[in-house]
Design a protein around this nucleic acid. Structure first.
Length: 258
DNA sequence: ATGGTAGCATCGCTA
């Protein structure tokens, strides 16, 4: 079972590329972030024609998340699970696909360490743990994936000197990833690339950052212990960042046995 | 230190 996360930075602007990519890579489950669509504008029929059921949670203009699945899509939850302080933005959708409980997340950017949006980011990540406590069981097959807007380690950042006093690398943000780890999740890409550095999933559009190798690894696929055990391959498809009108993010893929 | 680009409900905001 192939599970992929991809921040597409506007599904309207990216639909043709996403369709081509799906046809080539044939993921079983595809988690999308930043669709920037209202629910009634989501191209569900286009994906149905490619063999996918889908669920979208959007608000138009900004944010918006979706799950596409060839292996069923059940028990869909939009926003955080009941009992958790709801988020005003459309940033998380959860569904069961092929027996795996999948949460597709678009974590707030944070903007800067002194911005209210940074406080919101930390609160959002605290609520993600509460969401998992209420929605999912760490003993089951669970995937929490998406654009985390956090680089787990310094080696996931092209140049730490450029990130002094910046978001995406702060201890408080990384502590939130540790909390997810303590809940029972691990970084499936890192499991298959334990010694690698300079492997990124996002590159700023500006200044030729992609071609200069200036990126961050901020798109993660986290899996529970049973999922990690089944995970036999993971890669970032940086080819998808090339060519005409790419997203600024590349898809991150994992293959699970069975 | 700044600015660079892309997308949106576009001339300002978000990333």
């Amino acid at each position: 079972m192939r599970v992929v996360t991809w921040n597409v930075n506007s599904l309207r602007a990216r639909l043709e590329r996403v369709e081509e990519w799906i046809t080539e890579v044939q993921p079983d489950v595809l988690c999308l972030q930043e669709t920037k669509l209202a629910d009634d504008a989501f191209p569900g029929l286009t994906f149905e024609a490619l063999g996918y059921e889908s669920a979208h949670y959007g608000q138009g203009q900004w944010n918006g998340v979706a799950i596409l699945s060839k292996v069923g899509i059940d028990d869909v939850v939009t926003n955080f699970a009941a009992g958790v302080e709801p988020d005003p933005d459309a940033r998380i959708i959860t569904a069961t696909c092929g027996g795996v409980r999948v949460s597709c997340c678009y974590v707030p950017n944070g903007r800067s360490l002194d911005d209210d949006h940074y406080t919101y980011k930390l609160s959002w990540l605290d609520r993600l743990v509460e969401h998992l406590d209420r929605d999912s069981s760490c003993d089951a097959d669970v995937i929490v994936t998406g654009d985390f807007n956090i680089a787990p380690e310094d080696r996931d950042v092209y140049d730490m000197r450029k990130f002094r006093n910046a978001t995406h690398v702060s201890q408080a943000e990384r502590d939130r990833l540790t909390a997810l780890e303590q809940w029972g999740l691990s970084d499936l890409f890192r499991q298959h690339h334990p010694d690698a550095d300079s492997l990124y999933s996002w590159w700023d559009y500006r200044s030729g950052d992609f071609h200069q190798g200036r990126g961050l690894r901020i798109d993660l696929v986290l899996g529970s212990a049973s999922v990690a055990k089944r995970c036999e391959w993971s890669a970032i498809d940086r080819n998808a960042r090339k060519g005409k009108q790419p997203s600024d993010h590349a898809p991150v893929m994992v293959d699970l046995a069975g």
